[in-house]
Structure formats: C-alpha cells, structure tokens
Amino acid sequence: MGKIVVVTSGKGGVGKTTSSAALATGLARAGHRTVVVDFDVGLRNLDLVMGCERRVVYDFVNVINGDANLNQALIRDKRVDGLYVLAASQTRDKDALTSEGVERVLDELRDQFDYVVCDSPAGIERGALMAMYFADDAIVVTNPEVSSVRDSDRVLGILSSKSRRAEQGGEPVKEHLLLTRYSPDRVKRGEMLSLEDVGEILSIDLLGVIPESQAVLNASNAGIPVILEDESDAGQAYADGVARFLGQERPLRFTDIPRKGFFGRLFGS
C-alpha cells in the first residue's frame, strides 16, 4: 500500500508545483514507483513543469467521471523509470473533484505506486481540502515571509483537525516543513525571516531549505524538474530533501552566504 503525500501551503505561488515535481522525480529516481497528481483543477500547470504538456490526453476528472481509466490517463515520464504524471482537468467546474471520486482514484493509485504525490492548489477551498484530506504525509511549502508562514500555520491546523486521519482518530498526518526561496544574504542583513525563526514559529520537522535560484526558472522553462539539474543549488537542495524524507541524514546546505575571497570582502556588500 503506497503513501499519499500532499504538497500544500495555503498561500499561492510559494513553490508547491516546483516542489511536487522535484520531490516526485527524486523519489522515483531513488527506485520508488511514484505518481504525481495535479489537484489544481482549472489551472493545470504541473504538466508544464514536468515537461509532458503535449502528451496529456485524459486527466484526473476524466478518470473520476469514468470517461477514461487510470492507465489511459497516466503519463509515463521518459527520463526517470517508475515516474508518472496525472494531469489536472482544465474544466471550470470547481466541484468536479468529488470526495468519493478522489478517494476511489487515490485508492487505485495507492495499489500501484509506492508514493502518490498530490500537488495542491493554493487556498483552503475545496481543491486544497481534497488534496489534504487523504494524506499520510504533508509537505508544507513555506516562504520566509509573514503571510506565507501564517497561511502554513492555518494549513497545519486543518491537517490536524480536518484530514481523514484526524477524523478517524488514527495516527496524525506526518508534517514536514519545506522552506523555499530562501536567500541567506537577505537573512544575514535582517531583511528576511531566518530558517530558525520559521522553525520556531511552526515547530514541525524541517525537510529542507531550497535557496532562491535562477535554476528553478531555467528548469521550468525547459520542462525539466529542477532536481534533475544535478549541478544546480536548488536541484541539490531538493535531492537532500528527498533523502531526508526517505530517512537519511543530510546536513543543511545553501543556508549560509558563500565565503568571499579577500577582494570580495573588501568590495562586496
């Protein structure tokens, strides 16, 4: 029985889709059969970040409605073995994701895969609640910025009271903090909340810190999950996060300002 992992945040634009694509790719690369599911009905984007937008025929809602079966809708990644994408529907009908339908499809995916990564839409409306409800693990993507931290805390509240695990009184959803778009130099200058600040306020396990990086934009331009860019800082930071998720110990990287040489110290700011 596979695990359902939701990537969520409350606030929009903090890096959920980027992170879903990277983490799912990393899990598959580590040898786990993984599917990444786009829950953002109406605003499909995961397919673009994964670079499979031209291969979408059927989507999540088609499977829920029985217009297609899962195997017709799953898109196999050409780069990494055991990695699949289930695209979101572009319908404007926000009620397309019925609770029974989502449950049925997730159950079926769970039989076939080790990990079902759910890319949540922003907000705390139906789509986001649906993505969170069935989760075993939650990766809470947060930017070091007041409104993002506040929204993350609200999402943590929802996970601990309104998820299936909470309602059935089972073991609580396992929560992980993923701090993204982190700029060590701005933290150093006192302009940005530090990793310690955010950790202290949210007090959940830290899965990783992803630096603000040009590599993310480059990768999404090309439709490549950034974790496949092995040389890039963000790619390496995501790889560390995947390793930690799988229970390995990894020291934090990219959280300090790179040391400058003598001239850098003299002339830099």
Partner: peptide, 11 residues
Amino acid sequence: KNTASVAKERL
C-alpha cells in the same frame, strides 16, 4: 536591521 525581527514578533 529590524524588519525580520519585527516580522517574527508579529507572527
């Protein structure tokens, strides 16, 4: 200097 610590306190 203080904007991050103000942010933390408010949060």
